[in-house]
């Protein structure tokens, strides 16, 4: 229970720190926020000047705080608004940042969920088979392949896939998330078009990701196979199949949890690059749009949302892990002293 409180508290602290961090970052921008808003507004309206009162009103609307307030009030208002879910308004799109996120986040989540599931499923299966064939040709060959695939950055794979399968062979679309002439409804055409568009992005993440998982699983499983309790289980008459699944498999998979944690954060972060390459309108795509247009509310908003998503995933995994692996509940209580 103490562990639960501690972890939840830590996650909240992380989120608040990130919000404060974005506030500091906005203040650090070249010229400061005031000049920035003035420039943005004048640019969009073509006006020559703008009075202070209106500037203050605009800054509340877009950035969640008034430029006329003292800095601590600014920070407080900014943080309070964001924690209530108001992320301000995008200069570039003129829409509330929250709406852009609601529109784009499902695409990123869809892409990453499938990628992570496939990466871990393939990696775990392959790693287990490699461990049972340790030293044989299958193992040697796949260890080499895994190490090579693990060395290819996902975006290099993505670029190569775009070149080969989209540009040269035209087997897959080079950009977008769904054919533009389809209404968003759960029709077979729509679903298949979504999957068709997602194939290359998912393939780039999975192909460059499963090798690392397979190597990790292989190492864990080999270690488990050598454990004394595996031998005792054989002597107790436990069938080999059950030992492979319930003993070796399960015990080797559980420590991959740390790799899972890292993968979630890594893939969310990587979506900035991946979605840019495939012009896939998810969170990462809009984050980069925001960056290129120096649209501070949009980029800070998406950054905060990505962080919250990663923090939430890790918190969930962390709190449920103790239930599935009895070995760590002990560790956790030791940590908490």
């Amino acid at each position: 229970m103490r562990y639960f409180v501690k972890r939840v508290g830590q996650s909240l602290l992380t989120i608040v720190s990130v919000v404060v961090f974005t506030f500091v970052m906005i203040r650090q921008m070249p010229g400061g926020p005031l000049a920035y808003i003035r420039a943005q507004v004048m640019q969009s309206r073509g006006a020559d000047s703008i009075d202070m009162a209106e500037l203050s009103k605009l800054s509340v609307d877009y950035m969640n705080y008034s430029v006329n307030d003292p800095i601590h009030v600014q920070l407080f208002n900014y943080t309070a608004q964001i924690l209530q879910g108001d992320l301000g308004r995008s200069f570039n799109y003129g829409e509330p940042v929250g709406e852009i996120i609601l529109k784009s986040a499902p695409w990123t989540i869809f892409l990453l969920t499938i990628s992570i599931i496939l990466t871990f499923a393939i990696g775990i299966l392959l790693g287990a088979v490699m461990a049972y064939q340790e030293g044989e040709r299958f193992d040697t060959a796949w260890t080499g392949v895994s190490m090579f695939l693990n060395s290819v950055p996902y975006f290099v794979a993505a670029l190569l896939f775009v070149y080969v399968f989209a540009i040269q062979l035209s087997w897959f679309p080079a950009s977008g998330n769904v054919a533009s002439n389809l209404d968003s409804a759960l029709t077979p055409q729509y679903v298949s078009s979504v999957l068709y568009h997602a194939t290359l992005p998912i393939a780039s993440l999975v192909l460059t990701g499963f090798g690392g998982i397979a190597l990790g699983m292989r190492g864990n499983a080999i270690k488990e196979i050598g454990e004394e309790y595996i031998r005792v289980a054989h002597l107790r008459g436990v069938p080999g199949r059950r030992i492979a699944i319930r003993y070796v498999g399960r015990n080797a998979v559980l420590p991959l949890y740390t790799q899972f944690m890292i993968s979630v954060g890594f893939m969310f972060g990587g979506s900035v690059i991946l979605e840019q390459i495939f012009a896939y309108p998810g969170l990462g795509y809009y984050l980069l749009e925001g960056i290129n247009a120096r649209d501070y509310p949009l980029m800070m908003g998406i950054f905060i949302v990505i962080t919250v998503a990663v923090v939430a995933c890790i918190l969930f995994a962390d709190l449920t892990y103790g239930m599935i692996d009895p070995r760590v509940s002990d560790e956790a209580s030791r940590e908490a002293y």
Partner: peptide, 24 residues
């Protein structure tokens, strides 16, 4: 430890991008 935990959770690439954009 708390600081490390926080640093570990924040997704790296977006954080790096923010720094790069601001500090150029």
């Amino acid at each position: 430890t708390t600081i490390s935990d926080i640093a570990m959770t924040i997704p790296g690439l977006p954080l790096v991008i923010l720094f790069l954009v601001v500090f150029e």
